[in-house]
Design a protein around this nucleic acid. Sequence first.
DNA 1: TAGATTGTTAATCGATTAACAATC
DNA 2: TAGATTGTTAATCGATTAACAATC
Lengths: 226, 226
Amino acid sequence: MELNTALVLRLARYLRVLQKLKSLGFVKVFSNNLGDAIGVTPAVVRKDLSSIQIAGNKRGGYNIDTLITEVGRILGKQKRHEVIVVGCGRIGSALLAYREFEEEGIYMIAGFDVDPNRINRDAAPPVLPVSELESFVQQHGVEVAVIAVPDSNATEVFERMIRAGVRGFLNFTSVELKCTATSDHDNCPTRCTVQHVNIGLEIESLFYLINIGSPQNTRHHERSAP
Amino acid sequence: MELNTALVLRLARYLRVLQKLKSLGFVKVFSNNLGDAIGVTPAVVRKDLSSIQIAGNKRGGYNIDTLITEVGRILGKQKRHEVIVVGCGRIGSALLAYREFEEEGIYMIAGFDVDPNRINRDAAPPVLPVSELESFVQQHGVEVAVIAVPDSNATEVFERMIRAGVRGFLNFTSVELKCTATSDHDNCPTRCTVQHVNIGLEIESLFYLINIGSPQNTRHHERSAP
DNA sequence: TAGATTGTTAATCGATTAACAATC
DNA sequence: TAGATTGTTAATCGATTAACAATC
């Protein structure tokens, strides 16, 4: 069962909506409710759910608890998700301090920087020198990292992390980090995934889009349709 | 000529690559160079360029200067692009202070916040009280805004800005802001565009994707393929 | 000229939408 | 039962890929 990025993002969105509905005391939900909430048609919702083997009732919609459990299981919500942030400038440190992710089981466990003035081992989460990146990754089994360094250092820290075993990246630089060609050794079979967040690019495209009047859209990754 | 979001984002990416190539002294570029650089096939590049009426030479590729001029013109790079940031918490103020956008002709001209402690009229850019949002938007003809307020305030500031005439939004909240249903008055014909940046969601999906080993992806708005 | 690259058409692929039988 | 909603199939749409003639 291979789910693509778009589907996984939709599942994560459904989950957030479901959690809100549950907290409001709802027990059941219909495909058109979920569709409205995240901006897709009911048919997409039903197809998504049936693709992950979740069945509803022909008349009574879907049970919210079942949905939360099943979608959460697929997204691995039973596990604690630990993330590091490499580059603790303005954006990096903003993300590092952003505790709201913990509600979703995502924990920022450390930041890394080259600047000695930014190092702070006593902070929570601590900011460590990048020289300790590899050992930290290996010790903690870090799988996912945010890259928020200057463009000029992006490739270096990326390749170091690949070698150290990190497999998922959220890339805030404007360097187009590629997974395939990164292994120096051919014995590196590691597939990795990079999600790009390029704010300048998004703003640039916004200026075009508003002046033409094309329909709404999503991102990346992350985008929603009417 | 209606260009969709994905195409516009690719054009913006081409432009960055072209600027780099030009600064390195290159004069010509081939479709496969551009394709490699942003992670698409040469055929996509040629199709994109021909769709905006840019012709290359059958043997000599494309002229970089022509490309920069033409793509820049389409993206409206001759104009100064002014943006405001509503919500000056950690992420909002990080973006407000991010001067690198200016290289791309994007200027953060003001921030807005409810917290009196964050107001600073003398800063560059200034941080103003949200009560002044509408008047500022109208005075400066603001077209694009970053929304970085807490989720609970997202809809309110969004609707206020819509009414004030803002038409493009970069939404950092996890609220699914929708353009269509926002007008209180039916006489509001304004189409707007929202780009969503939902970092928690992207990290969540990363954890799924790395554990299954699906192929790389893009964002959004903003994502890149092999 | 021979070789390489564009520009475009046709073929493929996947995702979205429409439709509707099954059924609660 | 009648009405409403699911689950799935078929039809549509758009985007991606393949292929190749045109041509520099």
